[in-house]
């Protein structure tokens, strides 16, 4: 009897919390398609006033499609660097015996402990003034080019593969690169999906770094141009709320949809390795 009462309480707590978590998303999505997003509780479920005008409104001020493309290029660059160089490094650390293997492992642990706020000023000086990469995709991508968490995840997965398989392939005369590409990588495909998802949200959601190095509005990813809209343009607009919610929806929903599709790859054990400092 005590058990059933406890179970009942459990569902009340969970459902209440889930509503608190989900409500702002509901508000965002509905408001994005409303002529006048509500501020009162009695019109939370609107039946009329639907419009796509908010998207055209914000698009006339910040070039929604251009910003989305910038976000995509930024994210794709980080993904490419992380997958190519992360696979190589992760494989080397997990399966190859070479000088400097231990040192590389220690470096990876140290990198996780360096806080970005300490690097922000020197990186800004180095990349915009030293390399002249302000307002370029390369400058945006460089600080995130190889995600250390991804290298960790890859090396853990490679380590779990049976040793005999590698020995047999080496006896057959396969080179290490060939071994990696045609034997090891196909076996760690789940790790690849996890890494792509974990890495994707970093640059897609990142605000501070691209905000620092892009002054040219045509180079700004969506997170930056939406923030500019919120902090500068909105004040001089008659009815900015719908447009803000339309921009927020455009930025948020690609990630939400990706996550819902692939949510079984987001398990606690993968994310245990994904803890970032």
């Amino acid at each position: 009897m005590r058990r059933t009462r406890f179970t009942w309480l459990r569902y009340v707590v969970l459902t209440a919390a889930a509503l608190v978590f989900a409500f702002p998303f509901y508000f965002m999505l509905v408001g994005a398609f409303q002529e006048n997003p509500t501020n009162t509780p009695d019109s939370l479920v609107p039946t009329s006033g639907w419009t796509t005008g908010n998207f055209t409104n914000i698009d006339s001020r910040i070039d929604l499609v251009g910003s989305l493309l910038n976000s995509l290029v930024f994210t794709a660059g980080v993904l490419l660097g992380t997958v190519v160089f992360g696979l190589l490094a992760g494989y080397a650390i997990a399966r190859l015996d070479f000088r400097g293997r231990g040192a590389t492992w220690v470096l990876m642990l140290l990198v996780q402990m360096v806080p970005f706020q300490l690097l922000m000023i020197p990186l800004y000086v180095q990349i915009t003034r030293g390399y002249g990469l302000g307002d370029t995709y390369l400058g945006m991508i460089l600080p995130f080019a190889i995600n250390t968490t991804a290298v960790f995840i890859f090396s853990q997965f490679f380590r779990a593969l049976p040793k005999e398989m590698f020995e047999a392939a080496r006896i057959d005369g396969a080179g290490e690169l060939r071994l990696l590409v045609s034997i090891a990588v196909p076996l760690v495909r789940p790790a690849l999906v996890t890494v792509v998802l974990v890495t994707f949200i970093g640059p897609w959601n990142e605000f501070l770094w691209p905000f620092l190095i892009t002054k040219d509005a045509t180079m700004q990813p969506l997170a930056v141009s939406l923030a500019n809209y919120i902090s500068n343009v909105a004040q001089s607009t008659a009815n900015p709320n719908g447009a803000i919610l339309a921009g927020a929806t455009t930025l948020a929903f690609p990630v939400v949809i990706l996550f819902c599709l692939f949510q079984r790859y987001f398990t606690a054990s993968d994310l245990g390795a994904a803890v970032k400092g």
Partner: peptide, 11 residues
């Protein structure tokens, strides 16, 4: 998972 810029706009 969602960008802080989006959610800040909503809040």
């Amino acid at each position: 998972l969602t960008a802080s810029v989006s959610l800040v706009g909503v809040w």
